[in-house]
Nucleic acid binder design. Structure first.
Lengths: 342, 342
DNA sequence: AGACCAGATTACAACGTTGTATAAGCGCCG
DNA sequence: CGGCGCTTATACAACGTTGTAATCTGGTCT
């Protein structure tokens, strides 16, 4: 069917199997003329190495898993695309796993119990209990994406969520808003690390501006979907004193929130300024276009792949590292940028 | 590291390696007590089969590739999620490839030249030249998703694009619209099969209603992005007689188009009714929410995986099959459904 | 009671690759 | 001119699994 093996190439080139192997991998020194002949034979036969045979022999499959809560959330789709590209640069293949944010599933994956094929895991955790993660038995090289928790002995790659959230709320304060809501807090105990960090940044910015933090302006959401954002917005609108701005912890939440604001006849940004988080492509096309914290997803992906490869290749016992990627605040209509096509 | 092999289990259970293998695969008959002991040993050691060793021996890796033009397009993200789920039901793992719609890359993947690990390919082609595909050399089990072209000797799984497009335009006609634009036609020669089929359905519906087809109402787009939709809409608005309705070949195009309509102060659906295609989740949250043709993506995915497995397991020479999945027209505000939260 | 049979279990080789150890070729120096 | 060291190429075994064919067991039939 598919074909040529090392052995076939060796016969055609009149050398031993091992020599061909050496040429293919560029491992040992092979004399010029010999290499030429081998390369020609490889070309003529269309030889391609058998990945599983390699895996069996070397223990490396060249496949890394990327586990995300969902693929339909644009942020994760964009992140996954960046990870695939970054992995390709390093000659790795990416296997995407969708966890639905299920803690049990996330733990399973963090323990390498999903597909035994993989060399390592890039996990973007959502519901995972940190203590469960800390106690994981079966150790697979693991890098956590977008969550920071110093209790967990694993590498982290993320942006500075606290600083980014602080910048977002500062921006709203800078617009003169004084009653700033926040959508994305969670009732769960403990709340997701992401929610905690963004909330902390938000409150720091409020404090800087001399504004009091009012819990009533932070309705809890179940998940980070449009529907949750919409529900939270309805809650905020039902208050005696509704907010004049909202900072949403994700663009999806912002999308739902803006939808409700629109239905209630509010003008954005005049009546309500909105800032999102993630800077998904859709943010440019929302009505109005959405100001959003823009993590550098390419850098995030590249750093994550790099960290994972280091963990795979390096000693398993090396101390966990934390790497920060950059971010930006993309200003758009929802906080007053003049309208206009993207 | 990860651990237990068949051999370890065999030693612990006091049987031969092959017997353990038989138990694991449920292949041959194994006596009750023996099976019990083996199962217990498997459990105690946490044994899990080595996928690459299996692959090497059996020729089956249990991995299928899903190649899509892009993952950030919500339609493909949703489709990919469905494919992953459907594959899991059959014990298969999905490897996602992003082609960017590049014909060369698509051909490479269709020929199985991407990752030699895979058992078969699910390809959602975009730019691929049919003749190139028909002439592909290296045969890998292949199922085409969402494109129909009888020249290509490969299995197809898709919805009836012509009928679906006809229904979409019929709906606009039913609203009393008489000047119906269409966004999604392409200048490329030949245009994508998808564009051709949807255009055909559109024209059939126009003909049914006794409306003339006016090419000026069908501006060409480069790709199926929001930006392309926006550009096409500007073109339509610049006409002496702009349309009172548009049928967009994808929801992304519709999103861009509605964005421009909004910027120009048009009321939707009063001044302009809009129908999209794909029924992405975002369609419910657009402002206004978008009426859209809704392919049954779950069914599509399930049928595709089924067809691919049949091709992998069956004889390579079986004649190509075409399977249709269902679709629906989801009615929303953009064509007059009363507004209201989703 | 002896031969036979079916079911249960096992030994062996092979899938394609790479690491280790070894052999072969060859110029250089003592 | 013989031996040494260097470079280049090879033989062999092993990675974990499964298909084939052979072996073993215990019971049944004559």
């Amino acid at each position: 069917m598919s074909g040529a093996r090392l052995k076939d190439v060796a016969e055609r080139a009149g050398v031993s199997i091992k020599t061909v192997s050496n040429v293919v991998r560029g491992a040992a020194r092979v004399a010029g003329p010999t290499r030429e002949r081998v390369l020609r034979a490889i070309d003529e036969l269309g030889y391609r190495p058998h990945p599983s045979a390699r895996h069996l022999r070397t223990g490396r499959s060249g496949v890394i898993a990327l586990a995300v809560p969902e693929l339909v959330a644009p942020y994760f789709a964009e992140l996954a695309t960046c990870v695939i590209a970054a992995a390709k640069e390093s000659g790795q293949t990416v296997l995407i796993e969708v966890t639905d944010g299920d803690p049990a599933e996330e733990l399973r994956i963090a323990c390498g119990l999903s597909d035994p094929l993989i060399d390592g895991v890039l996990l973007s955790p959502l519901g995972l209990d940190q203590t469960a993660l800390a106690a994981r038995e079966r150790r697979v090289p693991l890098v956590l994406l977008g969550e920071r928790d110093y209790e967990v002995p694993a590498d982290h790659v993320l942006i500075d969520n606290v600083a980014a959230a602080r910048d977002a709320t500062r921006h709203l304060v800078g617009l003169g808003r004084r009653r700033i809501g926040v959508i994305g807090w969670q009732h769960d105990e403990p709340p997701h690390a992401t929610a905690q960090q963004r909330m902390q940044g938000h409150r720091e910015a409020l404090a800087e501006a001399g504004l009091a933090y009012d819990p009533v302006l932070a309705p809890a959401v179940g998940a980070y979907t449009r529907a949750d954002g919409a529900a939270a917005m309805r809650e905020l609108r039902a208050l005696p004193q509704p907010p004049d701005a909202v900072f949403c912890f994700t663009d999806m939440l912002a999308s739902g929130a803006m939808r409700v604001a629109h239905d209630e006849g509010l003008a954005i940004p005049e009546d309500l300024a909105v800032v999102g988080f993630d800077d998904i492509q859709e943010a440019r096309y929302m009505v109005p276009s959405l100001t959003s914290v823009a993590p550098d997803k390419q850098e995030l992906a590249r750093l994550a792949v790099k960290a994972l490869l280091a963990r795979i290749e390096g000693p398993a016992e090396a101390p966990p590292t934390t790497v920060l990627a950059g971010y930006d605040l993309a200003l758009r209509e929802s906080t007053g940028l003049a309208p206009g096509g993207p």
